Deep mutational scan, measured.
Amino acid sequence: MGSVRTNRYSIVSSEEDGMKLATMAVANGFGNGKSKVHTRQQCRSRFVKKDGHCNVQFINVGEKGQRYLADIFTTCVDIRWRWMLVIFCLAFVLSWLFFGCVFWLIALLHGDLDTDYKDDDDKSKVSKACVSEVNSFTAAFLFSIETQTTIGYGFRCVTDECPIAVFMVVFQSIVGCIIDAFIIGAVMAKMAKPKKRNETLVFSHNAVIAMRDGKLCLMWRVGNLRKSHLVEAHVRAQLLKSRITSEGEYIPLDQIDINVGFDSGIDRIFLVSPITIVHEIDEDSPLYDLSKQDIDNADFEIVVILEGMVEATAMTTQCRSSYLANEILWGHRYEPVLFEEKHYYKVDYSRFHKTYEVPNTPLCSARDLAEKKYILSNANSFCYENEVALTSKEEEEDSENGVPESTSTDSPPGIDLHNQASVPLEPRPLRRESEIGSRR
């Protein structure tokens, strides 16, 4: 089982795998120059863009038009607004034209077009017409509009002379109601789609790998820009990579689940303020055997998904993003964004995407760390350097704002901070800030 798991979770494809794949392509008759073999020097295209759209195009789909027309309502909801407006206008105009032609044909076959009612006051002739005051196609078209929109100006009306005319008036009224219901329903469904809710759900630009509770963890940050909550919010993550099976089958995008606390339930989050999602790199993680150097040379993509129900409509929305291997910062942490004021908490989104480097973060893999092949620094050293990194950030910001350097908390000259780390230190809580992250 261990060997199978290692093969499945191998992220960085070796040169031997690339040569094996190329040999397979030639042997199977696919070596026509169009096949692409992804190596370390040639990274694959992003499968999920940063804005959440999937970078996929469908080609050679059989009976595409028929399949889309069979699900016309979903098609109308998914198309762009400009095409929705075109369909909206065409549906009414074509129905008016169709029934206008029908009423014109009825008048033509009944002989109503030969009668001039402007110079004739004989009401008996008017009563013999199928539709009064309809003696041309324009008049028939206007009567069709008046019937379907129930305008009723009063000059044109159907008589009991022709039952077919009466039937067409009733039929057009029913068709008009159906068109109204369909168009209004599609427009309302399109307006109520929770897709735009994703514009106020954000992911951090970069993911980070750092120590948390004595273990290497992959972390990324999510935030909600609205005050309205995302009900039943939960997160998922998958690692996408290519691999070759033991039988020699090439899988271009193998999807591997990344555990973010599904078993323990901590994948469900209360997204009021930005939260750091934590994936513990343990023996079940696809990143277990990867060191910093392996991450730098790897070719994979981590897709992160945030799902929840919109509070206003109770409709489920899904926000997506992805991180390539070069977008994962090893040995970094996110800057705090949640600050405790006197009577409330304040979230500073200008710090949302910012990170700071944490010294002495192990550069080895989580496996080597678990097997004690890498000796961690003293816990006080880690905490102290973590505090120094934050303090230096604040000093830089104070210097930019014009604060005198004498007010900063610099260490005395001639003292090495790293050498001082081995000395037991008193706890130094942050002056006014605390970061709330997901705790395992």
Rank of each mutant, 00 (worst) to 15 (best):
G2P: 04
V4S: 14
R5T: 15
T6N: 11
Y9L: 13
Y9C: 11
Y9R: 13
S10I: 04
S10Q: 06
V12E: 15
S13V: 07
E15W: 03
E15H: 07
K20E: 10
L21W: 08
L21Y: 05
A22L: 02
A25N: 15
A27Y: 04
G29D: 15
F30Q: 15
F30W: 07
F30N: 15
N32Y: 05
G33K: 11
S35I: 08
S35Q: 10
V37T: 12
H38K: 14
T39K: 10
R40N: 13
Q41D: 14
Q42C: 10
Q42E: 15
R44W: 04
R44V: 15
S45D: 14
F47L: 14
V48D: 00
V48I: 09
K49M: 06
K50C: 02
D51I: 03
D51E: 14
G52P: 00
G52E: 01
H53G: 11
N55W: 00
N55M: 07
N55D: 14
V56K: 03
I59C: 15
I59P: 11
I59T: 15
V61K: 14
V61E: 14
G62M: 13
G62Y: 07
E63S: 15
G65V: 15
R67F: 06
L69R: 11
A70E: 04
D71Q: 15
I72E: 15
I72P: 14
T74G: 14
T75L: 04
D78A: 14
D78H: 13
I79R: 11
I79P: 13
I79N: 09
R80F: 07
W81L: 12
W83F: 04
M84R: 12
M84V: 07
I87W: 15
I87E: 15
L90G: 05
V93D: 01
V93E: 02
L94G: 04
L94S: 02
S95V: 15
S95E: 02
W96G: 07
L97H: 00
F98Q: 02
F103Q: 07
F103L: 03
F103V: 12
W104S: 03
L105K: 02
L105N: 05
L105C: 06
I106H: 01
L108P: 02
L108E: 14
L108S: 14
L109T: 15
G111F: 02
G111W: 02
G111C: 02
D116Q: 15
D116N: 05
D116Y: 09
Y117A: 00
K118H: 14
K118G: 00
K118S: 00
K118A: 03
D119I: 00
D119K: 00
D120C: 01
D121E: 11
D122G: 00
D122H: 00
S124A: 08
K125N: 05
S127L: 15
K128R: 13
V131C: 01
V131W: 02
S132Q: 09
E133R: 03
V134Q: 01
V134I: 06
N135W: 05
S136Q: 05
F137E: 01
A139S: 15
A140K: 00
F141P: 00
L142R: 01
F143P: 00
F143V: 07
S144Q: 00
E146R: 04
T147V: 04
T147D: 02
Q148C: 02
T150V: 04
T150E: 03
G152W: 02
G154H: 07
G154T: 04
F155H: 06
F155I: 11
R156V: 02
C157K: 10
C157F: 11
V158Q: 01
E161G: 01
A165P: 00
V166H: 02
V166R: 02
M168H: 03
V169Y: 08
V169T: 06
F171L: 07
Q172L: 02
Q172R: 08
S173N: 06
I174H: 01
G176M: 01
G176T: 03
C177G: 10
C177R: 15
I178L: 15
I179W: 09
D180P: 08
D180E: 06
F182H: 07
I184W: 05
G185Y: 04
G185E: 03
M188T: 15
A189H: 15
A189K: 15
A189R: 08
K190R: 08
M191Q: 04
K196P: 11
N198H: 07
T200K: 14
T200E: 13
T200F: 06
V202Y: 10
F203E: 01
H205A: 10
N206Y: 12
A207L: 01
A210V: 09
M211V: 12
R212C: 07
D213N: 14
G214A: 13
K215T: 11
L216N: 00
L216S: 02
L216P: 09
C217V: 12
C217T: 07
L218W: 01
L218P: 02
M219F: 07
R221N: 00
G223C: 10
N224M: 05
R226N: 11
H229K: 11
L230H: 10
V231Y: 11
E232M: 07
H234K: 08
H234Y: 03
H234R: 12
V235F: 07
R236M: 06
R236Q: 12
R236V: 09
A237E: 01
Q238Y: 06
L239A: 01
L240I: 11
L240N: 04
L240M: 05
K241P: 03
S242Y: 09
S242H: 12
I244K: 15
I244Y: 13
T245L: 06
S246W: 06
S246N: 11
S246M: 08
E247C: 11
G248S: 11
I251K: 12
I251G: 15
D254S: 06
Q255M: 11
Q255S: 07
I256F: 10
V260I: 07
V260N: 00
V260C: 14
G261H: 06
G261F: 12
D263K: 08
G265F: 09
I269G: 11
V272S: 10
P274T: 09
P274G: 12
I275V: 09
I275A: 10
T276H: 07
V278G: 01
V278F: 05
V278H: 04
H279G: 00
D282S: 14
D282Q: 05
E283P: 11
E283D: 03
E283H: 13
S285A: 00
P286R: 00
L287W: 00
L287G: 01
Y288R: 03
L290Q: 03
Q293L: 12
D294I: 01
D296L: 04
D299R: 05
F300P: 00
E301V: 00
I302V: 10
V303N: 02
V304H: 02
V304R: 00
V304M: 08
I305C: 13
E307D: 12
E307Q: 07
V310A: 05
E311I: 06
A312L: 09
A312T: 03
A314S: 12
A314I: 05
M315L: 09
C319V: 12
S321L: 02
S322A: 03
L324V: 08
E327V: 01
W330E: 00
W330G: 00
G331V: 02
H332G: 01
H332F: 10
E335D: 08
P336S: 15
P336G: 11
V337T: 11
V337G: 01
L338K: 02
E340M: 10
E341M: 05
H343P: 07
Y345K: 13
Y349S: 12
Y349V: 07
S350W: 04
S350I: 10
S350V: 04
Y356D: 00
E357P: 08
P359L: 08
P359W: 02
P359N: 12
N360W: 09
L363R: 04
L363F: 12
C364G: 07
S365M: 01
A366M: 08
R367M: 01
L369T: 02
E371P: 06
K372Y: 10
K373T: 11
K373H: 12
L376N: 12
S377Y: 04
S377K: 05
A379F: 03
A379W: 05
N380T: 09
N380I: 05
S381D: 07
S381A: 09
F382G: 06
Y384C: 12
Y384F: 12
E385N: 04
E385Y: 03
N386G: 11
L390T: 15
T391M: 08
S392M: 07
S392Q: 13
S392W: 03
E394Y: 06
E394D: 09
E394Q: 12
E394M: 07
E397M: 08
E397Q: 08
E397P: 09
S399P: 08
N401M: 08
V403R: 13
P404K: 10
P404H: 07
P404C: 12
S408I: 10
S408D: 14
T409Q: 08
T409F: 09
D410A: 07
D410L: 07
P413G: 11
G414A: 12
A421Q: 11
P424H: 05
P424N: 09
E426S: 14
P427D: 15
R428T: 14
L430F: 11
L430H: 13
R431K: 13
R432D: 14
E433N: 09
I436D: 15
